[in-house]
């Protein structure tokens, strides 16, 4: 464990908490893409199946359970409890066009052709594009509540910090995983446009307006 990965995991945890607080407090999931939340649940489910057969550390196990519970909890809030506030007309990204390519690529480019390894690889590829429906929704509605932009900033920061973790691990532990690194860079690049708007607008107290 290193400071970059710890900060990344905490940033990820904070993002999930911000989202749950936003939905619970405002009793609304307006501006949130349910499609992205479904993709995140698929990502964590396919990645954390090793909970049953691999114990890394208490921290690792607890965080996996928290991420799984929070992602399913968010889907419950969005598609059941506060279903009436779900923006079904704007949340129209075709996630099958993200799931299928990630699955095919995981079968072709992976470290080992074993079920758990293929599922882990699939989850890595899918996570790198899982935010697209959310960014698509924000661009379609043209704006986002500030708390939603804080959620997105934390979520984008998590994998950006992981890049520093991978650099650190390469030099300090001579360990690297190209699949995770390439997918993590793609994932972070997808946030760049948002990061720019967040830093130039939201941090100055303005509303996040995307050129529709």
């Amino acid at each position: 464990m290193n400071i970059f990965r710890l900060l990344g995991d905490l940033s990820h945890l904070l993002a999930i908490i911000i989202l749950l607080v936003k939905i619970w407090k405002t009793r609304s999931c307006a501006g949130i893409s349910g499609k992205s939340q479904i993709l995140f649940a698929v990502v964590y489910t396919s990645r954390y199946l090793d909970l049953i057969n691999a114990f890394i550390s208490p921290y690792n196990t607890i965080m996996k359970i928290v991420f799984l519970a929070a992602s399913y909890g968010t889907i419950y809030l969005m598609y059941m409890k506060f279903k009436a506030t779900y923006d079904v007309n704007h949340d129209t990204f075709r996630i099958e066009f993200l799931i299928a390519p990630a699955a095919v690529l995981a079968l072709i480019v992976n470290h080992a052709f074993e079920p758990l390894e293929i599922l882990w690889t699939f989850s890595i590829y899918l996570e790198s594009v899982a935010i697209l429906p959310q960014l698509f929704l924000v661009s379609k509605t043209g704006e986002a509540e500030s708390i939603t932009s804080h959620y997105l900033f934390m979520l984008g920061s998590y994998r950006a910090l992981y890049i520093f973790n991978w650099i650190y691990r390469y030099y300090a532990e001579n360990h690297y995983d190209l699949i995770a690194i390439v997918a993590g860079i793609v994932q972070t690049v997808l946030y760049c446009d948002f990061f720019y708007l967040y830093i130039t607008k939201v941090l100055k107290g303005k509303k996040l307006q995307l050129p529709a």
């Binding site: 990965r5 995991d9 990820h12 990645r47 090793d50 691999a54 890394i56 690792n60 965080m63 996996k64 991420f67 470290h111 080992a112 882990w120 992981y162 973790n165 001579n174 360990h175 690297y176 995983d177 190209l178 995770a180």
Partner: peptide, 10 residues
């Protein structure tokens, strides 16, 4: 390149 046996990252 170290063989990836166990993924210890979240």
């Amino acid at each position: 390149n170290m063989k990836i046996h166990q993924h210890d990252e979240l």
